[in-house]
Each structure stands twice: as C-alpha cells, then as structure tokens.
Simulated assay, not measured.
Amino acid sequence: MTPADLSLTVQHAVRRAVDDGALRVDVPPRVKVERARPGGTGDYASNIALSLARPSGRSALDVAGVLKERLQGAPGILAVDITGPGFLNFTLRRDAGGDLVRAILAAGAAGAAGAAGAAGAAGPPYGHGSALSGTVVRFAEVTDSRARVVTDVVVRLLRSQGADAGFGGDERIHVLGGDYLPGTLGVDAARWSLLRAAPQDRVLDGPPLLVQHERNSLFRVRYAHARVRRLLVNGAQLGLRPSYETDIHAPELLGVLGDHPVALLSAARHRAPDRVARHLEATADALLAFQHTVLPLGDEKPSAAHRSRLALAEAAGTVLAGGLSLLGISAPDQI
C-alpha cells in the first residue's frame, strides 16, 4: 500500500462516517498522510482527526475513535493506533489485497455450495455478519407499494447482519409514496426505481432505467456484473484462471470491495436500501475503470498479474451479485 492508497482509504473512512451520521463534516478532497515520526507508532500517521474536530463539534480523540472503527480491517492496514491528542497511526500489512480477494471468493464459493445443497456447512456471503445479533425487529404490515418493497429489503438487510427481523409488530418504514410498476418496467427496473431513491426522495423516473446507457445507474451495475462474467469466459479461453498471486495496484476497486461489509451494516442500521444501491454503483464504476487491465493485450503473454487481476474482477462480480440479490434484482451473465 502506497501513501496515496492509504490517503484514499482514510478518505473513504471519513465518507462512511459521514454517511452513517457519525460525523457531520464535509469530506475533505484529500487526506494528508506522512511517515511516522521518531517515537511514533507504525509506518504512517495522519492528523485528519485534529483537522475535523472543530467543524464536527467533537474532540479530536472522539473523531479519531470514529475513524479507527471504520479503518480496522481495511485492505492494507494491519493496525490503527491513536496517539497524542488524536493522531491516527497506521501499521501496514503485506498482501492485504490478496487476503480480501480470497476472502470474497471463498465466501462466494461457500454460498454457491450451500445453494446447491453441497455437503458441509456453507459460510455466510461476503458482507453478511452478526453485528446485529440479538436485535429483534418487527414491522407492521404496510399497503403502500413502495413501502412494501423497501420493508422487504430492510428485513433482508437486518437478517444479513444477524438480526431477528420480520413482520407482526409496530415499527414502520416511512417513505414517500410511489407506484411499483413491474408490469411496465419489469421487476428489476421497478425495484431499482423504488430502492435507489432515499426514503425522503421521490422514486426514480422509470423509462430511463430501461435504456442501456452509462447514465442509467441500474444498467451500469448490471453491465459491470456481465462484464466480469465475460472476462472469466475470455480468460478461460486464454488458459487463465482467477488466482490472486501477486499484489495488484487497484486502490479504488479494493477500497470499495473492502467497504462492502460496512455498507451493508450501515444500510441495515439505518433501514436504508439506497445505501446498498449507491455502494453497488461505486463498485461498478471502479470495476469498469479497471476492466481494461485484466486480460493480456496484443502480444502480451498471460502472467501471474493477469490471473490476479482476473481474481480481483471476479471478487467484484461476487459483490455486485450479492448486493443485487439483497435488493431482489437479478445479476445477468450477459446484457
């Protein structure tokens, strides 16, 4: 991990804290990191918590604690320590990208084995966890079409984080009205139109979601998944199999993949499926920017780097498919 990669990772942590409502600040366009000074801890340090303390109305130590929670376990980071009045100190890992990719692919393979009824206990899909274990949530039955779709997905999200969620209680999801038109738009576009908009916003206009264009967020997400499937097919034709063997410089894509568990937990806690949709858009955009580097070009011979990039692309496809599944939207192999 380079200093630029680390800077981007810390910036992502600030953005997640703002999205979660833990911090009320403007996300800085750049986060300064520098080599830890003599007597310090770890490899690098940042004063970001001190610079955000005043605008957030929190102490620097409080801000540092919020960011540390969102940085632990991030790709490339072995440990995060808080020193002095609120400096963040980072100890970097080796081959952290490989650990992340292998974890995603292993979770995806376990989920596929479980769905196929294979012997043995399949692990949970990547991003699912037990953070909300012991939480019981019961929703009242709703009649509004949008509220029904949103509540169904919120129940899925809560269960993905270990909560006991279902219907039969008094808690309600409050959203603006909106028609659910699967007969006109198809199930996928109809659900995306309702789920991509935040609860306080009106639903997305339906017809543009049927257009295969990069301005169509649903198309970008589903197309990115289809591109991964095509890369795997084309790679196999070249004798390439996905296997993360060498470190790949792809901080944006590795960053959003590492953010996936936090995005799902945040969406569950805030009853906000739109957070999942926005995270899938970010994942798709990072994958589509990365895709051109995956397979050999021209006279280039297949190498460990290509196998590693193919594994990273497959991990992105796994995240896209899992997120779309939670939203009740299909992930096609081709478009």
Rank of each mutant, 00 (worst) to 15 (best):
T83P: 15
G84A: 08
P85G: 09
P85Q: 07
F87E: 03
L92P: 08
R94H: 06
D95G: 08
D95I: 11
A96L: 01
G97P: 13
G98S: 14
D99E: 14
V101F: 03
R102F: 14
I104T: 12
I104M: 12
I104E: 07
A106K: 08
A106V: 14
A106L: 15
A106C: 14
A106Y: 07
A107R: 04
G108W: 02
A110D: 11
G111K: 02
A112C: 07
A112H: 09
A112W: 03
A113W: 03
A113Y: 01
A113G: 10
A113V: 01
G114S: 04
A115N: 13
A116Y: 04
A116R: 10
G117E: 02
A118T: 00
A118D: 01
A118Q: 03
A118M: 08
A118V: 02
A119I: 13
G120A: 00
A121P: 00
A122P: 00
A122C: 00
G123D: 08
G123W: 01
P125Q: 09
P125V: 13
P125W: 12
Y126K: 13
G127S: 08
H128T: 04
H128Q: 05
H128Y: 05
H128L: 00
G129Y: 09
G129M: 10
S130Y: 11
S130H: 11
A131L: 12
A131T: 15
L132E: 05
L132N: 05
S133Q: 10
S133E: 13
G134R: 07
G134I: 06
T135A: 10
V136R: 07
V136Q: 05
V136A: 09
V137E: 15
V137G: 03
V137T: 11
R138Y: 15
R138H: 12
F139Q: 15
F139H: 11
A140V: 12
E141I: 11
V142W: 11
V142K: 11
T143P: 12
D144E: 12
D144Q: 14
D144I: 05
D144S: 14
D144H: 12
S145Q: 15
R148Q: 12
V149F: 12
V149G: 13
V149R: 09
V149D: 09
V149A: 08
V150H: 01
D152Y: 04
D152N: 10
V153M: 06
V153Y: 07
V153W: 06
V154Y: 00
V154L: 00
V154M: 00
V154K: 00
L157D: 00
L158H: 01
L158G: 02
R159L: 14
S160H: 13
S160V: 15
S160F: 13
Q161Y: 11
Q161C: 06
G162E: 01
G162Q: 01
A163D: 03
D164K: 08
A165T: 08
A165E: 11
F167P: 02
F167A: 02
F167G: 03
G168F: 07
G168D: 03
